[in-house]
């Protein structure tokens, strides 16, 4: 068995509307890709909101069943897995760590429960040990986190706890849906670098879902670009982003505003350019 996770012509459609006018909305159309079990990688899914990237993530996590096609983990259909056994292999990380954790619940509860349910740890010392190990992998430790509530930590620390919680289950695949978009700029790169370390040191594969092309270029190995549920371009991340071929990928790349590309925007939108009629775009 060579594929860790395999999507085989996966589609998902939702029906909208009521009794009289039912509309089908195709969120994901015939998406196929596979991640190799022997070669850990960061696989990025890029797309704007409404492109179906979160629906795709939910199908990989087994939250939604595909309307057609199959998601296979280790060669077996995800739908046939027992839920706990599946969650021990695949773990999610969500966008907003402040929403992912209940504000009235201590953080260590999440870690301990994950260790018991999915990590297979039994007994206090084994649970403590596996939680501490996972926290140390993200640069924290159990004494720092024990008894703390979510509001006592910054967004960056909280997202680290969310990653540690996923690691406690010792999964083979992590699905991270926009994990850095709510993180402060000064802390964002440390989270992105952490994903790289998890891949290199722990051999984890990560499905990284984002709309941020710059971090995708920085960290990922392969990527797909989605538009309205369809994969319009795929390949090695740096090759695709350096020379995108599909018009939509090019449009996306050109819309990224960085300090380096700002000159072009300024040239067309500067005060002077706008003062001359017809120069507005």
């Amino acid at each position: 068995m060579s594929a860790l996770i395999e999507l085989d012509r996966v589609s998902k459609s939702f029906s909208r509307g009521g009794l009289f006018s039912t509309r089908r909305v195709e969120a994901v159309k015939e998406v196929s890709f596979a991640l190799d079990a022997d070669k850990p990688e960061i696989f990025t899914v890029i797309g704007e909101s409404g492109s179906g990237k979160s629906t795709l993530a939910r199908m990989i996590l087994g939250i939604h069943a595909p309307s057609s096609g199959q998601v296979r983990l280790g060669g077996r259909d995800v739908a046939t897995y027992e839920r706990r056994a599946f969650m021990a292999e695949v773990q999610p990380i969500f966008q907003n760590p402040f929403e992912a954790f209940n504000p009235l619940k201590r953080l260590d509860r999440y870690l301990f429960m994950t260790a018991e349910r999915f990590g297979g740890a039994t007994g206090t010392s084994a649970v403590d040990g596996s939680v501490d190990e996972a926290l140390r992998q993200v640069g924290l430790s159990l004494p720092e986190i024990k008894g703390r509530f979510p509001h006592e930590l910054s967004g960056g620390q909280l997202q680290r706890v969310a990653i540690a919680r996923a690691l406690v289950a010792k999964p083979r695949l992590i699905v991270a849906d926009e994990p850095v978009s709510m993180i402060d700029a000064s802390l964002r790169m440390s989270i992105v670098n952490l994903f790289g370390r998890l891949r290199d040191e722990l051999g984890l594969s990560i499905v990284y879902i984002t709309h941020d092309l710059a971090t995708a270029y920085y960290i990922s190995d392969r990527l797909i670009i989605m538009q309205q549920g369809v994969v319009v371009e795929q390949g090695p991340a740096r090759a695709v982003l350096s020379a995108p071929t599909h018009p939509y990928s090019r449009q996306l790349r050109d819309a990224v505003l960085t300090p380096d590309s700002a000159g072009a925007f300024r040239a067309t939108h500067s005060r002077k350019a706008a003062e001359t009629p017809g120069a507005r775009s």
């Binding site: 910054s154 960056g156 620390q157 402060d184 700029a185 000064s186 802390l187 964002r188 790169m189 440390s190 989270i191 992105v192 670098n193 092309l213 710059a214 971090t215 270029y217 920085y218 740096r238 982003l241 350096s242 790349r253 990224v256 960085t258 300090p259 380096d260």
Partner: peptide, 22 residues
């Protein structure tokens, strides 16, 4: 730090987050 930590397409240089918290 804010400006140096921005990743850029076409540049693979290692970029670090800032230690500590706000």
């Amino acid at each position: 730090h804010l400006i140096a930590s921005l990743p850029r397409i076409g540049d693979t240089e290692q970029r670090e987050g800032l230690d500590g918290t706000p």
